[in-house]
Structures are given as structure tokens and as C-alpha cells.
Design a binder for these strands. Structure first.
Lengths: 136, 136
DNA sequence: CGGTATCCGCCCAGATACTG
DNA sequence: CAGTATCTGGGCGGATACCG
């Protein structure tokens, strides 16, 4: 569970079905913007150095550092440090990270295959809203 | 970085690979905490009323309203209003929403199947950190 | 019941500066 | 190169109050 998660205030924990809770748990962890992009990048390139990731993703140093640490902590990404001068660090997917590629790929394929339909639905919705607010 | 690329302080859009950008786009939209839980709930129960969703998910009225509107706008969820007294509104998945169930299910299965491994990795990582900071 | 409007705290994430 | 530390504000999301 990431820091931002609201650990119940006055509301019920998260969901009646325990599965929903756990699904949400893992999605909160690995489903955020940068985690997915990092996994996708690493799955494409195999190994990447810190600044290679930074350049590829257009991510700030801070978020890259934080997200990589979290991914390493969760066992999805491995970190290999070479004490050369200058230093060199390589990030790669662990077997667990590799196993995550497939579900992500499914999601990505769905996304790519349905984005246009989503865009259409959105235009349609916006037009309807527009028409409703401009009855003149 | 391409030669002509201006070293602007604001970051590059999101990613060098256009696919990453779109993947991120759709994940930003439907990958958030509440959207996924709503889709999962609707896929389990078929149709749900506003307050049924609210109770099931432990979501605030505001976020439920906002998220449902966004899902409806994106064509994933249908909204049916019954002008009875008291009013009644039913939410359900559209065909597009139904098609989203499968990728989500894959992700959920991966999550459920690997959560314990993630927890193990995390404990291992935390222990190592603890040992490193307590050399006494 | 099914929302909308408003206020507000708190976290996320970018910018910047500094270190090994 | 590969980070860490600190500041800051913008936005997400909960609480509350109020309408149809």
C-alpha cells in the first residue's frame, strides 16, 4: 500500500469483497503511472541505467528514484551496482517482474485496441452535454 | 535526446515510445483506484444503484459521482435513470466495459497469485535495510 | 434516493541544490 | 553518473451542506 492510500477514515475499509481489496492493493502498488512505464521499458530493453530510464520516460529524478526503490522492494526489479568511476547502475526485471509483463501486455493491448472507441464515446458524451446546456 | 530538442526545464511529454504514452493514457483514465473497483463490482453484480455501489466500495459520494461520470463518458458504464419517487438510477457495464473485464481479470489473477511473493520480497528488502542501518 | 457545490487537508510530484 | 534533501504548489479525495 502506497503512502497516499487513505487508510479508512470513517468509511468501510475498501470493499465488501476481500478480493477487491487485494486487487486494489496490488493496483495501487504497481498500477501507477511510473511503475508501469518502467516495467514496460525494462521489458523492451532488458537492462537500463538510471539516466537512460530518466531520459526515456521523461520522469523526474525524484520519482524515478522513489519508484525504482519501490519496485525493487516489491521484487519486480533488480538493481545492480558497479562501483566504477563514474558509478554505473543497471536495472532489470526479476523473474517476478517478467511474470508481470504478460498481464500488463494484455492491458496495453486492450488499451491500444479500444482507445479510439473511448475517444469516440467521449466526443459523443461531450456533444450531448454541450447540446443539453445550449438549448437555444 | 534528439539534436534539435530544446533542453526545456519542463519534462518531455511522457515517453519516447508512442505506445508507452498511450498505455499511460488509458491507465491514467481507467487504472485508478475507484474505476477498477467499480468495474469489478459491476461485473460481479450486473446492475447496481448509486448507493449500492457507495456502500459496497466504501467510496465517498463525491468520488463515486465523479468516477461514474468519467466511466460513462468513456463509454465503459451505462447509466439508466428511472424518474420514480424516490428516483432510481442503475449503473451497468456497456459492451466496451465488458471487454475490459478480461484484461482486468488477468491483472487481478496475477495480483492474487503473486501478492504473497511481493510481501516476501518486501520483508526481505526491509530486513536488509534494517540490518544495514543497524551495524552495531 | 441520487446527486451537486463548497471547503479544505494532505500527499504527490516537479524543481532545485547538493553529495559521493 | 546516480542518487539524496528540501521546498513548494497543485490536485486528489474526504467531509459537510444543500437541492430535485
Amino acid at each position: 500500500m502506497r503512502p497516499g492510500y487513505t487508510e479508512e477514515t470513517t468509511l468501510a475499509p475498501a470493499a465488501q469483497c476481500p478480493d477487491c481489496k487485494r486487487i486494489n492493493e496490488v493496483l495501487s502498488r504497481v498500477g501507477d503511472r511510473w511503475s508501469v512505464l518502467i516495467v514496460v521499458s525494462l521489458s523492451q530493453y532488458g537492462k537500463l541505467r538510471f539516466n537512460e530510464l530518466k531520459r526515456n520516460l521523461g520522469i523526474s529524478q525524484r520519482m524515478l528514484s522513489l519508484t525504482l526503490r519501490e519496485l525493487e522492494r516489491d521484487g519486480l526489479v533488480s538493481r545492480t551496482y558497479f562501483p566504477t568511476i563514474p558509478p554505473k547502475v543497471e536495472y532489470a526485471l526479476t523473474p517476478l517482474g517478467e511474470s508481470f509483463k504478460e498481464p500488463v501486455k494484455q492491458l496495453a493491448l486492450w488499451a491500444l485496441g479500444n482507445l479510439s472507441e473511448i475517444d469516440n464515446a467521449r466526443r459523443h458524451y461531450d456533444d450531448a452535454q454541450q447540446a443539453a446546456s445550449e438549448p437555444a
